[in-house]
């Protein structure tokens, strides 16, 4: 059984936010507007996080693309009263939109604040509905949503591989953010396969995780800048 994970090399990352927009485009995330942004209702499954350390002129700013960490021990699934957020056998933390009651317990329990809520009914100007991805469900009002590692791509890839009578290859499944990353700073693959790039990179001495000390065991690994 695969265990899907991601590695983000901050040394290569240029903070261009291609991953951010690719995610919006792939996952039918509604448009933001000034009001939504002001009131904190805009949705970004993938977001660029600025971390400023120390002070002028010796400061460092670390810019980190932040998807869902897909923790091995996700604090969010512990608290869901209706089993609407679950971790799959392959380690993907998903959200069942049709079951979620919108209590937002998981959103508050997530130490990474990566879960989002549909405060209103998701809406697009009519012509923009053309671009909705047919593989991804448009969410309902009042439910929580989150990064799924583009799980629908796994389903498609797996179906295709099965149809072609072969194993799922490393290129069959890749989230939209990883696919588009211009600097090739993002890697995706099976952490359980010792030969996969993610497995090798996540053992690098540059590797670290966000909020490691919380014991959530994120499956998104960052590689720090510098030598």
């Amino acid at each position: 059984m695969a265990k899907w994970g991601m590695v983000i090399d901050l040394d290569k990352c240029t903070a261009c936010q291609a991953c951010v927009i690719a995610c919006q485009a792939e996952n039918n995330i509604p448009n933001s507007d000034p009001e939504a942004a002001r009131t904190g209702r805009n949705i970004h499954w993938m977001e660029m996080l600025p971390m400023v350390e120390e002070e002028y002129p010796h400061l460092r700013m670390r810019l980190m693309p932040r998807p869902c960490m897909h923790c091995e021990k996700p604090p969010c699934i512990k608290v869901c009263p209706v089993n609407a957020t679950q971790i799959s056998s392959e380690g993907i933390v998903g959200q069942i939109n049709a079951r979620c009651i919108g209590c937002r317990y998981c959103t508050t329990a997530c130490p990474y604040t990566v879960k989002y809520f549909n405060w209103f009914k998701p809406k697009w100007p009519e012509v923009m509905e053309h671009q909705l991805n047919p593989d991804v469900q448009v969410r309902y009002i009042g439910v929580v949503e989150k990064c799924t590692f583009c799980h629908h791509r796994l389903q498609k890839g797996r179906d295709l591989a099965r149809y072609e009578g072969r194993e799922l290859g490393p290129d069959d499944y890749m989230p939209a953010c990883v696919q588009t990353c211009p600097a090739d700073a993002m890697y995706f693959g099976d952490l359980d396969n010792p030969k996969s790039s993610v497995a090798i990179l996540s053992k690098s001495k540059r590797a670290f995780h966000l909020l490691e000390d919380l014991g959530t065991h994120p499956k998104v690994t960052y590689l720090s800048e510098g030598v």
Partner: peptide, 19 residues
């Protein structure tokens, strides 16, 4: 671009289907 696109490139459909 070797299969890659930046943020602006990814947003292209918002230009095509712009209301």
């Amino acid at each position: 671009n070797g299969g890659r696109l930046c943020a602006r490139g990814q947003a292209g459909l918002q230009l095509l289907y712009n209301p």
